[in-house]
Design a protein around this nucleic acid. Structure first.
Length: 461
RNA sequence: UGCCCUGUAGCUCAGUGGUAGAGCAGGUGACUGUUAAUCACUUGGUCGUUGGUUCGAAUCCAACCGGGGCAGCCA
């Protein structure tokens, strides 16, 4: 007899004569001749209450069945006499599978997220983290479905890469050289040609450039995989290892790119709200009282859309004191982005057409000579969740840009080739998976939505 | 990387210069339906570390270590 999932039993229309559940004891309440067990098997937020009378098999040996232990309970699914649950199991037998002694760190009370991070191997056994990671799974699936439904192809871009991409932040080096005795070149520098790949390699910071090559063949593609940034960022929304979704569309301009980003965010939120209603209740009730309203608001209204220039004008005219001055040509700071999305528009905002000096070499120059076809989607509470652009498809302009940014044409020969052979307008964006999950759950720290978060100084587990 | 906050029992925290406390958890007992069960009793501490000030330091000061927040960088 195989175990049945509590998620399924909870939905049962009728009582059942013979059921088996296996899971972990959340709490035990003793009475003189019987006890209650609350058992969670991870299949859903709810735990199943089992009533174990003294005539149940295993009752005599049940002393070790305490919080944290794993158990098998066989019995009948019956309507509960008590309040708080529809169904409970009247146990015919109870069996201790694996005990948990009094050192088991999870107690039947609230723990701080900071404490639970230190026991990240056990925290998924709590209601909060169980819900986070069930939703994480469903969200990932919703993302694949979104693209699959629209005939996008899923491309696996490399995780080890040689492109010191975009001249952006620091990269993690990938090497098999002996750090104590690396081969040296004539100038005393490490000779990467002797390394495993015959050159310097890194963990990817983005699959975009490779994604563009596949969009230039399959049409519409997306990537969804781990991404690594070695920046010494210490904030609640940065991790050194995170997952990113990067669609890339051939024959597509910035307007359609923004349309897709907005549709994407709405669609996956809608799907998660339907498929994870129970788990989301926990966040609505205990994490953020305004969360439900905010998600429904996002679904019901179009995103606001402003150019960078308009955003600057709004910020300059709003009369609010900012720590950092707002000036055309300067990056919007967190406080500015937050003002736009949280106070001025009170909704997600897409800001587009940024000054070209602020953006990387691959973004397409606009006709005004000053801006590029870039866009960021900002959401309340988190800030930037999507960054994207239309790519520069014109060979001469791309080469010119690369020169300006000090990027070697030789290293990116294959990327430049796309502009030589059948070039076409194309666009895409990158979306931080964890940031989206934070937005949907209202969880305030990225370390609480990744099973084993990697941040500067921390790689335990 | 910069600025700020913080470290007391297994957990959450009180104690702010004069003999270390509470709730929960753990243990023992009671209880015929509990829901973070309840009730009674009970175990449990080099007050992060090192140094300094003081007759006396959990308390004041410094450094270091750990945790957190904000900013920059971005997703």
């Amino acid at each position: 007899m195989t175990r049945q999932l509590i998620a399924d039993l909870m939905k049962s229309e009728t009582g059942l004569d013979s059921v088996v559940i296996q899971g972990w004891v959340r709490t035990r309440r003793d009475s003189k001749t019987f006890f209650f067990l609350e058992i969670n098997d991870g299949s859903c937020l709810k735990s199943m209450q089992a009533v174990v009378n003294e005539d149940a098999a295993g009752y005599a040996d049940s002393k070790g069945i305490a919080t944290g232990a794993s158990v098998t309970v066989k019995g009948r699914l019956v309507a509960s006499q008590g309040k708080g649950q529809k169904w409970e199991i009247q146990a015919d037998s109870v069996e201790l599978v694996g005990s948990a002694d009094e050192t088991f760190p999870l107690q039947k009370k609230r723990h701080s997220n900071e404490y639970l991070r230190e026991i990240a191997h056990l925290r998924p056994r709590t209601n909060f983290y169980g819900a986070v990671f069930r939703i994480r799974s469903k969200l990932a699936f919703a993302i694949h479905r979104f693209f699959n439904d629209r005939q996008f192809f899923y491309v696996h871009t490399p995780i080890v890469t040689a492109s010191d991409c975009e001249g952006a932040g620091e990269l993690f080096r990938v090497s098999t050289l002996d750090p104590k005795n690396p081969p040296l070149g004539e100038g005393g520098e490490i000779d990467s040609s002797k390394d495993f790949f015959g050159r310097s390699t890194y963990l990817t910071v983005s699959g975009q450039l490779e994604g563009e090559t596949y969009a230039s063949a399959l049409g519409n593609i997306y990537t969804f995989g781990p991404t690594f940034r070695a920046e010494n960022s210490n904030t609640s929304r940065h991790a050194s290892e995170f997952w990113m979704i990067e669609p890339e569309m051939a024959f597509c301009d910035l307007a359609a790119d923004m349309d897709l980003a907005e549709e994407f965010v709405k669609s996956v939120i809608k799907e998660v709200m339907e498929s994870c209603a129970d788990d989301l209740e926990l966040f609505f009730n205990f994490i953020d009282k305004e969360l439900r309203q905010r998600l429904e608001f996002v679904l019901s209204r179009p995103f606001q859309r402003v150019t960078y220039t308009e955003a600057v004008e709004i910020l300059q005219a709003c009369g609010k004191k900012f720590e950092n001055k707002v000036e055309w040509g300067v990056n919007l700071q967190s406080e500015h982005e937050r003002y736009l999305t949280e106070e001025h528009f009170k909704s997600p905002v897409t800001v587009y057409d940024y000054p070209k000096e602020l953006k990387p070499f691959y973004m397409r120059a606009n006709d005004d000579g000053k801006t590029v076809a870039a866009m960021d989607v900002l959401v309340p509470g988190i800030g930037e969740i999507v960054g994207g652009s239309q790519r520069e498809e014109r060979l001469e302009l791309l080469l010119e840009n690369m020169k300006k940014h000090g990027i070697s044409e030789k290293d990116y020969w294959w990327y430049v080739d796309l502009r030589r052979y059948g070039s076409m307008p194309h666009a895409g964006f990158g979306l931080g998976f964890e940031r989206l999950l934070m937005f949907i759950t209202g969880v305030g720290n990225i370390r609480d939505v990744i099973p084993y978060p990697r941040v500067p100084g921390h790689a335990e587990f």
